[in-house]
Amino acid sequence: MTTATDSRPGAVRRQRPVSPWLFLAPGLLIVSAFSLYPFLSTLGNAFTDNRTLVPGGFVGLANFRELLHDDMFWTGLRNSVLYVAVTVPLLVLLPLLLAMLVRRHVPGITFFRSAFYTPVVASVVVVGLIWVWLLDDRGLVNGILEALGASPVSFLSDPWLLLLSAMLLTVWKGLGYYMIIYLAALTNVPRELHEAAAVDGAGALRRFVTVTVPALRNTMVLVGALSSVSAFKVFSEVYLLAGENGGPAGEDTTLVLLVQQVGTGLNGRVGYASAISVVVFALTLGLMLLVLRANRKEDS
């Protein structure tokens, strides 16, 4: 802010070249300092053995070589991939069905739409703790199971059930968000197509498959991309349900959970955590490109 005094009224016929940069300064400063610079330093750190309190030195590919032999890394990678594989199909399909359910302006529909969106608004910590209580050995879900004559399930101690519960929590919390995206897109499906199909005798299911789904394909790809990227980076749901170590013996850990565990604390292995972060970044990017590519191939 030292060079410009561009605020004299009446002085501006031609823009002074400096004022645009004053407009941009706060934003550029923040994103450069707190997104781009950390990104570059993550790339750099990945090749060092830096620790939180002890600066280390360049170690070449040692961190990445260690990753290959680190069981926790493979567990985390497996769980993150599973997370995508389970939650994404559900998050592409269920919100679409939900959007079709709330599409019509029947009385009270605004209330229902808002209510379905509530889990999106709540913090993941809040809904995580609510689920911990629901899924407790003596919680409401087991109470209902018992009432139905089933035997109680220990959702929160078996590693696989824990992971599954976290996935369902992610789906439950995301439903309303993607529902709104689909709702906006549904208004663009031409009604004539539906009516023509109905005249031809196509039932509701057939019309859904032959008219609605093709018309919404772009939106479905968008939802798939958004939900897969966020599922791959899952942290909070697993952390809250399975605990900071990622479940019994770390069986439920995910890549981001591993980054947080390895990289923080007084003895945090910044270098090694950065190497995992680079893997997270590369795979996220790869995932995005994969989704887009799949879309383009269908186009041609």
């Binding site: 781009l36 610079y37 990104f39 750190n45 939180t52 980076k233 980054v259």
Partner: peptide
């Protein structure tokens, strides 16, 4: 102007979770 736009788009593409340790160090 284009360059400034590119900076913001790139910042948006960086997943927060992958830079969190570097942010903490900073």
């Amino acid at each position: 102007r284009k360059a400034a736009l590119v900076v913001f788009v790139m910042a948006m593409l960086v997943p927060l979770e992958s830079i969190i340790i570097a942010q903490f160090t900073l």
